[in-house]
Amino acid sequence: MKIAIASGKGGTGKTTLATNLASYMTEREKVVLADLDVEEPNSGLFIRAEHFHSEDKYKSKPAWDSEKCTLCGLCQEVCNFNAVIRMVDDIMVFPKLCHSCYACSELCPEGALPMEQEKIGELNHFRGKNLDFVESRLMIGEEQAVPLIAQTSEYVDQNLPGADLVIMDSPPGTSCPMIEAVKDADLIILVTEPTPFGLHDLKLAVETAEKLDKRHAVVVNRFGIGNDDVIDYCREKGIDIPAMIPNDRRIATLYAGGDLLMIPSVQEQLERVSGYIRRIREEVAG
C-alpha cells in the first residue's frame, strides 16, 4: 500500500509525519520511505540508516545538429514550451524549459534534433532495520522536479516490490510535482495546521485529491493554535482526521535537533495513524 504525505501549505509537518510514521511502523512491518520532495529533500535529516546505493538521474533534451538542419522551423511550431526557438540562422534549445516530449525530435524531417541525456539529479538509497529510505535530490538550477519524482517512484516500484508499506514525503503545493508524487498513492494524508492559512491551502489540496479521485484524510499538526475551522471543514466534508499532533515546544526542540519524536503525546497520535492505515489497507485488500 502506498501513502502520500502531502499538504497544500508548506511547513505544516509533512516530513515530521512521514519520518516519524515510517519509523513507528517499522516496528511491525517492512516500510519504504521515499522523499519525493526532490527540490528540498529533508527526510534524510531524521533517518539513521546505512548507505546502500546511489545513481545519477537524467532527462532527455534535444541537441541541435546544424549540419542537417534546413531551418524549416517546424520544431518551434510543435514545441508547447518555447524550449526550441529559431533565431536568425540558429535553432536555440533551452534545456530547462524542455519537457522531454520528443515532438521536435520525432517530427524533424531532417533528424536534426536527436535527443540526448542531461543529468538532473541524484538518487540515494539507504537501509535500516525494516526500512528502505530512498531520496532524490534535484541539481541546483534545474527547474523541473517532475521527471526526477517519476524516476524515483519507478525506482521504488522496481527495486522494492516486497514492501508492506510505501510512505512518500511529497512536495508542498498542488502543482505538477505534487500531482506526480501522489498519483500512484492508495491514500493521501494531508497535513495541515489549524489556522486560516492552513485551511485555505488545505482546501486546495482537498480539491486536488478529489479531482484525482484519491482517498484522502487529514492530520492536524500543531493542534491547539489557531481555531476550529479546519476541524469544522473536515467534518462538513466528511473527511477523516485520524490524528492531531499537539502544539508542543518539545516537538520543535527535537525536530530542530534532527531527532524523531519519541515522546508519548506524539507516539499516541502515530498509533492512531497507523491503526487508520491498517484499516484502510484491509478495506483496499478486501
Binding site: 518551434q76 514550451f81 518555447n82 524550449a83 526557438i85 533565431m87 533551452f94 524549459l97
Partner: peptide, 15 residues
C-alpha cells in the same frame, strides 16, 4: 496564455 518560456517567445517576436 503561455505557461512556460515567455522570455524566449517574446524575444523572438521582438526579432
Amino acid at each position: 496564455n503561455q505557461a512556460h518560456g515567455a522570455g524566449p517567445r517574446t524575444a523572438q517576436k521582438m526579432a
